[in-house]
Amino acid sequence: MSLDLKYTYTEKKDTRSGFGDGFLEAGRKNPNVVGLCADLIGSLKMGDFQKEFPDRFFQTGIAEANMIGLAAGMALGGKIPFAGTFANFATGRVYDQIRQSVAYSDKNVKICASHAGLTLGEDGATHQILEDLGMMKMLPHMTVINPCDYNQTKAATLAIAEFEGPVYLRFGRPSWPIFTPANQKFEIGKAWKMIDGKDVTIFATGHLVWEAVVAEAMLREEGIHAEVINVHTIKPLDTEAILDSVKKTGCAVSAEEHQLNGGLGDSIAQTLIRHNPAPLEYVGVNDSFGESGTPTQLLEKYGLNAENIVKAAKRALARK
């Protein structure tokens, strides 16, 4: 690729490993950090923590509802439980348990959700949840975080351990470019302007932040200067960053590995409609389930890659 990228990478790694490494470090820092997992310790990369702190780790078996209740009980007893499973089972399967025992009861539980979105790949639509951000952001008290690469996921994991309150942390399976700095400071609720621009703002979250970085370089080749903002915290949303940027650029694109209904784009639209109506184009899955395939194939087929972000940016610009 001969694109002049503003961020580059030398290594790819899965975001779930960022979680696993952050979780271990959080456990070393604070003896109150405990772990739970519903028979996916290897997939969630929770094994190092389990090995180092066997007394503070609880294999729950394939019983996610019970795991959420256990975590709520541990939290009220003063622990900081990290409950891990696939994003599908961490949300849809246990929505009521999270709603009543965690969110409504305001328990300091960290719901750690891997294998989110289409980029789970070959396992197909049963496992590719695309509704989780919407479900979680609707819950009062819930903080919702979707970091973009290994380094950011590790930093986010360390940050939520020090944050008091229920958190939904979403990450994924595929090997993905590591393009943000190691040991970065992660500020919950603060969007990160990664690239300055003046023509259009791209608000991206999770894996699609990388696609946004690529899209920015593609747009720049055509003389379009996009601003790229990494919205790692879906809730609380950094409305100030959104409004400041769109005030300057006058139009925007949202990009997420999620349904359009209920996702980041909806939250941004709400903000713009209330304060500064401006053209907004969405990149996301349009009311559809996924299917088996490689992550790259799926992002292409469902219209979520850099090329689609470029097209959406041009549509937004044309509406200015």
């Binding site: 209740g69 709520a72 009980g73 541990m74 009220l76 622990k79 409504y104 009861s105």
Partner: peptide, 30 residues
């Protein structure tokens, strides 16, 4: 509910089937 901070209540209940899990969680903490 805990939301209104009534002394004695540690978790919301009403949607059934969740209390034993919560009790076990705090028992594990103990």
């Amino acid at each position: 509910a805990t939301h209104e901070h009534l002394p004695g209540i540690r978790i919301a209940s009403g949607s059934l089937g969740q209390g034993l899990s919560v009790a076990l969680g705090v028992a594990q903490t103990k």
